[in-house]
Amino acid sequence: MLEIKNLHAVIDGNEVLKGLNLKVNAGEIHAIMGPNGSGKSSLASVLAGREEFEVTDGDVTYKGQDLLDMDPEIRARDGVFMAFQYPVEIPGVSNISFLKTAVNEVREHQKLEPLSARDFLKRTREMQELVQFDSALANRSLNEGFSGGEKKRNEIFQMAMLDPTLAILDETDSGLDIDALRIVADGVNKLHSKDKAFIIITHYQRLLDYIVPDFVHVLNDGQIVRSGDKNLALELEEKGYDWLKKEPVTS
């Protein structure tokens, strides 16, 4: 589904991705871990199409197409979703009416009829329940005055509404209390299917108790330096990253 080859990216004159390789097949869950500043969010941003990042080398194919060539909204409509590490607050833009536009853009792209007001409402209710997102929040301005945890839940709620093919969750677990963590994990597990893939960026093994990854990768200094199965996460929890920083090994 997604193939990243030798990806190099620069922001503000700094090279933040330095030859990154990753292959994600439909149905897989990949976890990406790594120290602060290693490039995890940069990778997510490049995949989502943030224009500040300049790709200087390498390529990314998504469902057989050149992903880097697509505008961010086209990627989104084609099923790429990124849950932001720091969701922005947008006063004056209603959460729900924005989401309605977004859902219908995605549907139009997939040659589906727009949802009727009634069906949209129905779906909203279902998904709110699924991720236990307070309907009072859904009706407020986008993330305005939301707590850290509420913003993260809103990301998951939006993901549930948009039903993406490839979801990239950037530290969605940070700032969540233990109940919320379980709810988010349940949500991901329910949305997961054989045609869908997840890339989960996290610092904590804890999340991976609930969402069991097929692969765990360690990103350091813009490259994947180690890949393994879920046991790698346990090993990292125990040993930290230092032992990996010394001797880069690519899988």
């Binding site: 947008i90 853009e105 939006q158």
Partner: peptide, 30 residues
């Protein structure tokens, strides 16, 4: 217009024009 906000909306599938107009309207609706 706030680039971060613009990107956020586009990353959810809104066209650039729709995202801009949503932000401008929000600014004016105040």
């Amino acid at each position: 217009l706030d680039d971060e906000a613009l990107f956020y909306l586009r990353a959810r599938g809104l066209s650039k024009a729709d995202a801009q107009s949503m932000l401008v309207n929000a600014f004016a609706f105040d």
